[in-house]
Design a protein around this nucleic acid. Sequence first.
DNA 1: CAGAAGATCTGC
DNA 2: CAGATCTTCTGC
Length: 184
Amino acid sequence: MARDLIGCLLVVDHPDGRAALRLVETEAYRGALDPGSHGYRGPRPRNQSMFGPPGRLYVYLSYGVHFCANVVCGPEGVSEAVLLRAGEPVAGVDAIRARRGIESDRLLASGPGRLTQALGITREHDGASLLRGGSMWCARDELTQRFQETGISQTKRIGLGAGRGDELPWRFVVAGHPFASRTR
DNA sequence: CAGAAGATCTGC
DNA sequence: CAGATCTTCTGC
C-alpha cells in the first residue's frame, strides 16, 4: 500500500483554497508486526485512529513540535498505516507557501512535518476520512502511472532506532526526486 | 513517579 | 548542533 500511494495526489480543501501534493515518499508501518509502529504495543489515547477503519488519517505530534500524517490501511483493529513523508505541490501553491512561510520550492513538503504544515493538517484532522464526501482525499491522474513506472527506490525507514525494525526496507521514494526528503 | 527517547525541523 | 516540548515507555 505504501508503494501504491507513490505518484497519487493528496488533495485538501481548506477554507483558504484547495491544495494538492503529488506523493513522492512514503513509509509502511505494520502495527503489531512492527516494533517501529506506534501500534506495536496496542491502542493508546494517541493512536486510537490507527485501530479504526481504513481510509482515515492518523495524525500525531512528533517531538512535541511537528504533526505527521498517516493513511490507515488495515481493517478495523489492525493498526497498519502509511506515513506520508514528502510530496510535490501541484495545486494551491500560494496557500502552501503562505502556511510554510518560506520561499524555496523544494522544501515546501519534503519531510513529514513539512508536508502536514503545507496542507494545514493538524491533530484536529486525526481520524478524518479520505473517502467520498470529505474535505480531503487521494486521487490518481494520468501521471500517477508514470510515477509508478519511473523507478521507485526502496530503502530503510528514516529516524528509527536500532531494534525497532530499522533494517526493514519499507520506505518508498521516487528515485532521485528533488522533492523527496533528505536521507540524513 | 521521574527520566529518557522518540516515525522532526529550524535557526544559530 | 542544540532546542522546542508532547506522548509513551522503563526503571526504581
